[in-house]
Write a protein that binds this DNA or RNA. Structure first.
Lengths: 155, 155
DNA sequence: GTCAACATGACAATACAATTGTCAAATAAG
DNA sequence: CTTATTTGACAATTGTATTGTCATGTTGAC
């Protein structure tokens, strides 16, 4: 089993894992009126604080147009509020409202319980290696991005 | 950094990695008239040999309806041919034609060259751990599958 | 052997994420 | 000052996957 073969096996797993993960998150979110994408936006705001739409897009490796739609929905639900952006008059900074934050924390809590069971049979070293490999994948295949909007920072 | 936090970081990477991977594969496939899904079906047939549509679906963790569409397209392109299925009169077994096989091998070859560069900075141990973790993710979140069609075997 | 449960092909409709395209206003860079 | 870039806003489109349905084939219980 060469390293190339191993990489190949990993790549084949990405699609099904992604799909099941998305479905699981959806299931957990069902009824809350929050989609997987909306949840991701809330995450960025919870971690990074106030951000403009294009900033969020870069963090999530998505187009700003996609984020715009999610932000609009979240704002309509009262989970986000806009504030002035000293750096750009037309591009407001969005932040979680009190409602948004508590909703997000509720979500995170149920997710964490789910994760406890998931990680039990896995070692810290395995998890650390996985993150390294996934980041390498992300970076390597960024070469295929034609749109600079999609070249998010990896910190 | 707890294991739960690590798992969380990994989960957040799955979506962007999946998207970039899909785009990279598409780019490589551009012009050949083969989509990512069609390529995945060819892969199964190359590895597992003759299979029925539902069998392929289980292998790829997808619904048979989805596979049916891909198989139809591949057959129309002359990359697949159907043969009798001793186990089921109405459900033929599909196999790669000579054309299909050579096309698939051509694809695999260019992919392998790409992978060489990808795996260079990664160790065998890291890659092995990643596969373990991804399989655990896949298995764990299979609990959210309501459709038995989607419960593919992990061998 | 008969009948009920299940698997499959075939086709249609839909949902959802993501992309592409476009234009005007704001900003940055030279 | 002039030009290029960034951004918001809106529209249209694509691609993957799901859901629903029906007729036919298959399997297993009895």
């Amino acid at each position: 089993m060469t390293k190339t073969d191993q990489a190949y096996a990993i790549i084949q797993l990405i699609r099904p894992v992604h799909r099941r993960l998305a479905r699981a998150v959806e299931t957990k979110l069902a009824g809350s009126g929050i989609s997987v994408g909306m949840r991701a936006v809330m995450e960025i705001l919870a971690v990074k604080g106030k951000s403009s739409v294009p900033e969020i897009a870069r963090n999530l490796f998505l187009k700003r147009q996609q984020i715009q739609l999610l932000v609009n929905e979240l704002e309509a639900k009262g989970y986000l509020e806009r504030g002035p952006n000293p750096a750009h008059k037309r591009s407001p900074l969005f932040a979680l409202t009190k409602d948004g934050l508590s909703e997000f924390e509720r979500i995170r809590q149920t997710e964490n319980m789910e994760l406890e069971a998931l990680v039990t049979p896995l070692s810290q070293a395995e998890l650390a290696s996985t993150e390294v490999v996934l980041r390498q994948l992300l970076e390597h295949f960024s070469a295929f991005e034609d749109d600079p909007d999609n070249l998010g920072s990896l910190e």
